[in-house]
Amino acid sequence: MTKKISHEELQKIVTSVPMLSASASQLLQLTAKEDHDLIDVINLVRNDANLTARVLKVVNSAAFSLVNKVTSIDRAISYLGERIIVSIAIGDCAGKLFQKELSGYEAAGGDLWKHDLRTAIASREVVFQSGVDLNPALAFTAGLLHDIGKALISDYLQGSVIDAVEIVSAEEELNYLDAEEILVGFDHTQAGYELAKAWQLPEELAEVIRHHHNPANAKEEYRLLVYAVHLGDNIAMMGGFGTGSDSMRYKLDNNYKNYINITPNSLATVMLNVDIEFEKLESSLNNSGDET
């Protein structure tokens, strides 16, 4: 029923996706750098009037229930933190892609964004709870972007959900990546990687997109980050926020233990914190967007 995507077609799909806005792109570059300052983030946002307005709207939304209205962008950004600024910037310029209905996975519109947001929060929480030496904001951003390839190949997977589930159920070694590749010729990490290149994302983010299901294949220098998102992704699915038919149908790479130390108790704390933080973040991002 499905048709394989050729390399040329994949390139066509990638080029049909709108580019990131200049400020979103610069934000991703900047926040990926280990030694950047918050002041650089502030200056970047200040130069984008739309983004400034959105950030102020979010900080003053009911979710944060601040007593006094925040009118300065400096204060808003220090209060919200980098990760929320990145979420706003990405949501603004690539919202359509993230909010897309993934009919090829039988996932409703908005499910991908929710899964990505949960993965982002979980990846960051994994960093906190395990105490690994990794920039938590980078783990968040990487989590937000990790599954972008699904939005690219979903249309081509339309009508294939029964077949895909059959493929992964028939053989124990096969996971949903294999099903995607069998059905349309590419899995979502390969497609996402092509978009990462087109968007000129920093290499560490591209590596996460490409290897988040197989962290061992990532370049050694980024492997810890990729493992953090690998765990964050699985935690998001375990918490009931997958993207439809593929949810939980991937392998956990138990070698994460060589990079990240997480106990059953700290995992439980991560899962709980993800629920708490997600509720807050989702409502603040949603309620501030539509009226502008």
Binding site: M238, Y250, L252, L267
Partner: peptide, 15 residues
């Protein structure tokens, strides 16, 4: 449910 190949830590479904 549990994701594939989970170890004890990640078997929250089972726990």
């Amino acid at each position: 449910a549990n994701v594939m190949d989970t170890n004890d830590t990640f078997q929250i479904g089972k726990r």
